[in-house]
Amino acid sequence: MTDIRSRNSRDSKYADFEDLREQAITLRREGLSRRQIRDRLLVDNNDILNRLLDGEPAPDWTRRPNAKDDLRAKARELRLQGMTYDRIQVELGCSKSSISLWVRDLPKPPRRTREEASAIAKRGWEATLQRREEERRQTKQAAKDEIGTLSERELMIVGAALYWAEGTKDKPHARRESVAFVNSDPSMIQVFLAWLDLLGVDRELLRFHVSIHESADVLAAEEYWAGLVGSDTSSFGRTTLKKHNAKTVRKNVGADYHGCLIVQVQRSADLYRRIEGWWYGIVDASVLVSGRSLPG
């Protein structure tokens, strides 16, 4: 019996549509949601509910926050200024498909010239390059943070591997049991010197030499390396000058080119033998970790 009375009540409300619409609008303006109005007026037909609320905006509290609202408004503003989808994309960094949805009801701007199209494409490419560079920077910084601090043992292993990759080595046909390290990368030099300090090598035993192309600024290079190692150019050995070949197109030019620094350790035969031993100890330990045997 209760269900019959409720159904009759709803039918009577649908018959008097204008009265029902007035009630729905009043409830809407009081801040009720669609569901609340539907339950209050017992309207279970969505089409009729839509007609009852036609033209009445939803209350603010029912609207879901949208992170793209600001972008949408800015896109419409730029479109009204005559910008194309490409230019809006460059300005806002969002997809063309989103821009199309946001501004498709607005008038199209006049057709752009070839020069304008070229300028837009250039700005777009520059924005892409900037984004890629920022991605590179973030990746490198994250990797750097993963290292954290080094223990003395870790630095000892790093230094031994670094020397075996970049330092001079003894050969059966040319005995060179002395420590000499050559590199153009200042960070490599810094790590090598820190490693020598860890090993207790006296700085008085170090000799520095610069090797650089004769066409470069030799004095500036000597001062640069002297500042890096905390020494004075007067304590440096004679600089080795490489002859310039005009036919060779070199990339290592300009103010950032400082040549190479040679770091020699005096009376270092015993240190060299220890370095060689450390290196082959690293090799053997690496084989055990990997589970692979060396060829031969």
Rank of each mutant, 00 (worst) to 15 (best):
N8L: 14
S12A: 12
Y14H: 06
D19G: 13
D19L: 12
L20F: 01
E22W: 04
R29V: 09
L32W: 08
R34W: 04
Q36D: 13
I37W: 00
D54M: 06
D54I: 01
G55S: 12
N66V: 14
A67E: 12
A67F: 08
R72K: 15
L78A: 07
M83T: 06
G93H: 09
S95Y: 05
P110E: 12
A117R: 09
A117F: 05
A119M: 13
K122E: 15
L129G: 03
Q130L: 13
R132W: 07
E133N: 09
E134Q: 15
T139C: 06
K140V: 11
A142C: 07
K144Q: 14
E154F: 09
E154W: 10
L155A: 11
A161E: 05
L162V: 10
E166N: 11
G167I: 04
A174C: 13
R176C: 13
V182Q: 08
N183F: 11
S187V: 13
Q190R: 14
W195C: 01
L199K: 10
D202Q: 09
F208K: 03
H209F: 06
V210P: 00
S211I: 02
L219Q: 12
L219V: 12
A220S: 07
A221T: 01
L228M: 09
L228N: 02
D232N: 10
S234V: 08
S235G: 03
T239F: 01
L241C: 04
K243W: 09
H244F: 15
H244I: 12
K247D: 13
T248C: 09
V253W: 05
A255Q: 10
H258T: 02
G259W: 01
V263D: 03
V265L: 05
V265C: 06
R267M: 10
S268L: 06
Y272L: 12
W279L: 04
I282N: 00
G291C: 04
R292V: 02
R292Q: 05
L294I: 00
G296M: 02
